[in-house]
Design a protein around this nucleic acid. Structure first.
Length: 744
DNA sequence: GAGTTTGAAACT
DNA sequence: CAGTTTCAAACTC
């Protein structure tokens, strides 16, 4: 069972030697652990094929700055259709994440990583559970990590380094445990025997759902997690953990279907093996275990509670969930380690924060930009095609309708059970925001439009528009919301995502992602629309969140195409014609992209760069500093060139992105509400302006200046995190478009 | 929904 | 690099 072969798992290899497998990683406990498990044959090192596969893997963003960063110019083009396909899932073991801060997994052992694994399915396990071990890109980690909600719980442990990730959504069987920065030791004790007895004696019962039991074995508390033999025939498994100590018990169970308890992987001496309680349900395929382990890393979410939760698996869902999980066949150890190490290093309690900055530099220039700044946060967009099987509840896609149902059901159940549904929604992934990316994958249901929800006062009544919302066609069938704690919001950057971020009161520093009510009919309706109708439909305000390209003559191979510019393939919501920006034309896409980049290396770089500091205090300071210098902290990289719109309409990229014009702009008659171009007067200068068609003028009490400052602050803070001066109600807030913004 | 305006991208 | 053309989004009616 154990694989005698070493180095079966090839860590991801990018074009740079800096990303080759680290000996440290390979010698890490986890790596050793995997060696003993995985029969998976070595795979050719290849970077993730999420996007344009020929392009090299971007290195982690500067927030994870490491001397090992690969400065090589890299670009990434996301392949929606492949993004969530389990068949394309690739496993990356550890080291990629380690590049972040030069922290090796082995340096940050994971203990108490309690995992309630899904039970093994005897049927078709091979096909479902086999985890293809391949390298993966960090971005994939991030996106997928963010794709699923988990609950990050700081335990009651006095150890500040302990952070628990509790998956709370669709796979309650999986719990990410605690991350500890200190090493553990393994002690011999008799618990193993006792536990084994317990397992063997107690596991032959037909249990319907996973359960966790704490048993007292020789005075030591041992948590036993069982996943029972399901009525559908799926097997039972048991995992255990000594709760009394940080130690990982070495236990030899007769069966090899391991159900690892945390720490085993990373404990220096951990050799945790596990057994399954049911003899008839022997799991002889370690791939499943590996797959499940990898799934651990798939979940990310937001910090929420102060206490851990025990998730109860609904037996009705278990089978389905497992199938969903297996379909994912994720490989996330590296991602987990990556994130965990960041958690520990940053002291963050939320993976969402880690998820920030996960967008990878598109090229060397961008990398430089990133490196030169403290990349703060970002929520990137997950991208998928309408055809992709994408089981995330909050990023439902038509193709994942069944999964969506499952999620919804879970949500409902959770609500009924008094659970906290507010944290069910996955955070949109994506960080950094692809420069040009609009990634409005909202349309795909895979991204969220994370935009400030304007109050009614934000716009002139005559022009009041509905705030961007998730396109109906890709939304769950029920309205959902989830709250994001201040700790997360504080680090958020905002981009056009599929979801609407509704800023709560500034005082509570929280925000709620609101999922509009939705219905499948609309989904179907939209999908049945002709391209012409989609064209119209797609760009209505109410569907802004799902804006897709509408190219007719560019074949979606020019920067005119927002999808192409964003580095994503066109998909179902697009109304483009003769589109070549599709996976089947990958070669052409890549070729064109390279051609464009050869002409302009920054063609796919972010247009808008914001500077955001890592702490509110710093942000304030920076704001104050910036106010003295420029009207806005964010700048359009190249500057606009408006002649007639006076930078007051969305024709203007600066205005559209909610940033002020700068000296780099060549606009004429600039009246950008977010900050006019230098030379056209100070921000606080009294001037008449017209915003969204409504003219207003500041008065002598400095109101305008204050308003401008508020805009300023809002931008600076990635708006949800704004505990500064609230916007003046009378301010006619232009609608933000964070599509092309990168936050630093 | 059709047509116009606009400015970025592409081309020369 | 500047001028022109093409293009698609934004906007208006």
């Amino acid at each position: 069972m154990d694989s005698p072969e070493t180095n079966k798992i090839v860590t991801s290899t990018s074009t740079s030697s800096s990303t080759t497998s680290s000996p440290v990683v390979q010698e890490s406990p986890f790596f050793n652990y995997l060696r003993t498990l995985s029969p998976i044959k070595p795979v050719k090192a290849a970077h993730v094929a999420q996007g344009f596969p020929e392009l090299s893997i971007p290195t982690p963003p500067p927030v994870f700055t490491s001397p090992r960063l690969n400065p090589q110019s890299e670009t990434i083009f996301l392949n929606r259709s492949k993004h969530f396909h389990s068949s394309n899932k690739k496993l990356s073991i550890g080291h990629e994440g380690n590049r972040d801060r030069g922290t090796d997994i082995s340096e940050r052992p994971i203990s108490r990583l309690t995992v309630r694994l899904v039970s093994c399915s005897q049927k078709g396990r091979d096909s479902k559970c086999s985890a293809q071990v391949q390298p993966s890109s960090p971005s994939q980690f991030v996106d997928e990590f963010l794709a699923d909600p988990v609950e990050v719980v700081r335990t009651n442990s006095s150890d500040p380094d302990v952070t628990c990730l509790n998956h709370v959504d669709d796979t309650p069987e999986v719990q990410l445990g605690c991350i500890r920065s200190k090493e553990t030791t393994v002690k011999e004790n008799n618990v193993n025997d006792e536990l084994l007895k317990y397992v063997e004696n107690g596991s032959d019962v037909q249990i319907k759902s996973s359960e966790q039991t704490e048993v007292d074995l020789q005075g030591r508390s041992v948590a036993v997690f069982k996943t029972g033999k399901m009525e559908n025939g799926e097997s039972q498994s048991v995992v255990y953990q000594d709760l009394a100590s940080e130690d990982v018990n070495d236990i030899n169970f007769p069966n090899s279907c391991i159900k690892p308890v945390s720490g085993a992987q990373n404990s220096p001496h951990g050799k945790a093996r596990s057994a399954e309680g049911s003899q008839e349900a022997t799991c002889d395929n370690n791939n499943q275990v590996l797959s499940e382990i990898m799934q651990m890393g798939e979940y990310a979410g937001v910090a929420s509670n102060e206490s851990a939760e025990t998730k109860i698996v609904d037996p009705e869902e278990t089978g389905q969930n497992q199938r969903v999980l297996r379909r994912r066949c994720l490989q996330f150890e590296a991602s987990v380690a990556h994130r965990k190490s960041i958690f520990s290093n940053q002291g963050f309690s939320s993976p969402a924060i880690i998820s920030r900055c996960s967008r990878l530099p598109a090229n060397s220039t961008e990398m430089e930009m990133l490196e030169s700044s403290e990349l703060d946060c970002g929520i990137s967009n997950n991208i998928c095609t309408a055809n992709s099987s994408q089981p995330m509840a909050s990023k439902p896609s038509p193709c994942a309708a069944k999964t969506v149902e499952t999620h919804n059901d879970k949500l409902n159940r959770s609500v009924r059970n008094g659970g906290n549904p507010s944290i069910k929604a996955p955070l949109p992934s994506g960080i950094g925001l692809h420069l040009n990316s609009i990634v409005n994958t909202a349309a795909m249901g895979c991204t969220a439009s994370l935009s400030r929800k304007p109050s009614e006062n934000d716009y002139p009544s005559a022009q009041r528009e509905k705030p961007p919302s998730v396109p109906n066609q890709y939304l769950p069938t029920e309205s959902k919301s989830f709250s994001v704690p201040a700790s997360v919001l504080g680090k958020f950057s905002v981009k056009r995502l599929g979801y609407e971020l509704e800023t709560q009161s500034i005082a509570d520093n929280s925000a709620t992602f609101q999922f509009p009510n939705d219905n499948a009919d609309q989904i179907q309706e939209f999908n049945q629309l002709s391209p012409q109708k989609k064209r119209k439909r797609t760009f209505t305000n109410e569907d802004e969140g799902c804006k897709r390209c509408n190219c007719r003559r560019s074949k979606c191979l020019k920067l005119y195409c927002e999808c192409f510019a964003a580095g994503i393939y066109c998909a179902e919501p697009c109304a483009c014609q003769e589109c070549f920006n599709k996976p089947q034309y990958e070669d052409k896409v890549l070729e064109t992209r390279k051609q464009i980049e050869s002409r302009n290396p920054l063609a796919f770089a972010p247009k808008i760069v914001r500077r955001v500091t890592d702490s509110p205090a710093n942000s304030i300071m920076l704001q104050e500093e910036n106010k003295k210098v420029t009207p806005a902290s964010a700048r359009h990289k190249r500057g606009c060139n408006c002649k007639k719109s006076m930078c007051l309409k969305k024709y203007c990229e600066c205005y559209q992105s909610g940033v002020g014009c700068s000296a780099g702009c060549r606009c004429e008659g600039c009246k950008n509400a977010f900050g006019i171009k230098e030379g056209y007067g100070e921000v606080s200068e009294r001037l008449s302006r017209k915003v969204d068609g409504e003219s207003w003028e500041d008065n002598s009490d400095g109101k305008l200046a204050m308003v401008t400052r508020s805009n300023f602050i809002e931008q600076e803070h990635c708006h949800p995190h704004n505990n500064l001066t609230p916007l003046t109600p009378s301010l006619q807030y232009p609608k933000y478009n964070f599509s092309n913004i990168v936050f630093f």
